[in-house]
């Protein structure tokens, strides 16, 4: 390098500063940009619907959606719709996720269970669960049973796959350590395998619970008088875009809430991660 400098001097030029080329590719936390995008989009739609170049058939006025939402709140209907939906979501997702974690751990631990169930899970994973709704209605009744079943079934398969993947990924050297200290099988599962699989299980839950919210609308297709999904479906069949969007916004908020809850859980349970 010294040579280059000498040469530069000889050519009558000064030293050249090394060009920086290490920029980019490092995500930075710029939370406000997301907010700005939202605000700009909504403002654009508001302006477009008011000035008329977006027709009433294309999009509702954001201000009308807000008004619908406020009305929902004030009339108490919001909670009349939210309460059954949240119950369905919590019970269905709890059933599906706990069964999924249970079966997933068994698949991860026992070769026979793995050989027997992995093909089965692979076979039922791609089934659109909505297609099975009429069947669930026959099996579990048109009331809450079929709705719990649909949500549970929908969350079950991704949880199983995430869980046994997570169990497979538990550091084998930790298990060998447990064995070398003479820990019982049950202790190894409880103290090493399960905590070790927790990051994978939680990130699987993130996806499973989002699917549960998606399925909420499907679950409320059949025989639900109240519920956010039923509300959205009704708004859709009435071409009431304000109610439709108000319902969709509620689902989005629900999704954000669930994601935040899992984030909190991760912070509590996975603080040990590097």
């Amino acid at each position: 390098m010294a040579d280059t400098g000498a040469e530069n001097k000889r050519n009558g030029e000064g030293p050249i500063e090394v060009r920086f080329r290490g920029g980019g590719f490092a995500p930075k936390s710029l939370r406000w940009v997301g907010v700005v995008v939202f605000v700009v989009l909504i403002a654009l739609v508001q302006w477009g619907t008011e000035s008329g170049w977006i027709s009433a058939l294309t999009l509702p006025k954001p201000s009308d959606v807000l008004a619908t939402f406020v009305q929902l709140w004030e009339s108490g209907l919001l909670f009349k719709h939210l309460q059954p939906s949240l119950t369905r979501l919590v019970i269905g997702a709890a059933l599906g996720a706990s069964a999924g974690i249970g079966i997933g751990v068994l698949i991860g631990l026992f070769s026979y269970v793995r050989a027997g169930l992995v093909p089965l899970v692979a076979a039922i994973f791609p089934i659109p669960k909505i297609a099975l709704l009429p069947l669930f209605v026959i099996w579990f009744g048109i009331d809450e049973g079929s709705k719990y079943a649909l949500i549970a079934f929908g969350t079950f398969t991704p949880t199983v796959v995430a869980t046994y993947g997570a169990v497979d990924n538990v550091d084998r050297s930790l298990i060998r350590m447990g064995q070398s200290f003479g820990l019982s099988w049950f202790s190894i599962v409880r103290k090493i395998v399960l905590p070790g699989a927790m990051p994978g299980i939680l990130s699987g839950l993130r996806i499973s619970l989002a699917i549960a919210i998606i399925l909420l609308v499907a679950a409320e297709m059949l025989g639900a008088e109240y519920g956010i999904g039923a509300y959205i479906l009704e708004a859709g069949s009435l071409y009431d875009l304000e109610r439709l969007f108000a319902g969709v916004v509620i689902l989005s908020l629900l999704g954000v809430l669930v994601s935040a809850l899992i984030g909190l859980l991760e912070k509590r349970l996975l603080g040990w991660r590097v």
Binding site: S173, L174, S180, K191, V274
Partner: peptide
């Protein structure tokens, strides 16, 4: 535990 290992990668439970 009469025969006890010490591993190269420490094998500590990170949690």
């Amino acid at each position: 535990n009469p025969l006890t290992f010490v591993f190269q990668d420490f094998a500590l439970l990170p949690w």
